[in-house]
Design a protein around this nucleic acid. Structure first.
Lengths: 143, 143
DNA sequence: GGCCAAGATTGGTTGGACCAAGGATATTGG
DNA sequence: CCAATATCCTTGGTCCAACCAATCTTGGCC
């Protein structure tokens, strides 16, 4: 799709540009993650565990903006791959404590590298300073 | 979801920020369009017809980045609402010429106003200059 | 003990983006 | 002028992310 041939009214709506960019990113990321046998959600969860330490599914889900039921499925996948361990919280038996394994820590770096590569090809047209600018604008929007 | 509580590794990936922003925009737009009895696709198609004049479904679809089969469904909806007319192209009987009706032209302005309102609430945190900046960055990415 | 809240699990639904095949018509090459 | 190829519409799907609701267990509270 040649963006410069799309209707001007459309091009004038930032939400449309964002949606198209997001779609393209989604495609590239899905590809990259499929090649690595993972998904974007995996990276998010592993990153949360790495930064904040073990936690319940609910906590991690909230931090990453992932739905409870989706969290369940993702933790199943990560546990099956040995990147995460699900263990009952001794202090609250409602909870599963999710813990990063050593393999999970390596996996996080692996996925991070793959995703960083995607960022490079996606934002190829922007300088480093412009990427920062973009990041800051988006962060303010979401704030 | 409080973005400042999400993992730093995630926040550092522009693609993640874009995806979240896109999701929020999608929610707001779906709401606004549902309230008006339409969809985002309707606006795109009407805008293309308004700017480029009548055309085949394939042409319009390419301009807007809409799949052929989805175009079919959307034109059905717009035709049923009287915003568009489907007529056989006399010069090429494979084609349907899609034409904007007078009601469709009014509808376009109506949807445009609704979408502009959504942009305002979505990009509330940005100044007009910053919105332009964002638009330009995204346009360059998609270029 | 009785009640409400939180967490996990299960089992959905919805909408957008895609893909494939077939029938009708055009176009092109020989 | 015929055969092969391409285009366009139409139909009928698939796939996945996002989301929602109900249930069950456990914890906290009065």
């Amino acid at each position: 799709m040649a963006i410069d041939e799309s209707p001007a009214r459309l091009r004038a709506k930032p939400s449309w540009l964002i949606s198209k960019t997001s779609a393209r990113a989604h495609r590239l990321i899905a590809e990259a993650m499929a090649g690595a046998g993972g998904r974007a959600y995996h990276f998010a969860i592993l990153a949360a565990l790495d930064e904040f330490g073990p936690g319940s599914q609910a906590q991690i889900g909230q931090r990453c903006g992932i739905d409870q039921s989706d969290m369940h499925a993702m933790v199943n996948e990560l546990a099956r791959q040995g990147h995460v361990e699900r263990m009952p919280d001794p202090g609250d038996r409602r909870r599963n404590l999710i813990e990063l394994t050593a393999a999970g820590r390596r996996r996080l770096e692996e996925l991070d590298a793959a995703l960083s590569g995607v960022q490079d090809s996606l934002f190829d047209a922007l300088s480093a300073a412009e990427r920062d600018q973009l990041t800051q604008l988006l962060t303010r929007i979401l704030g």
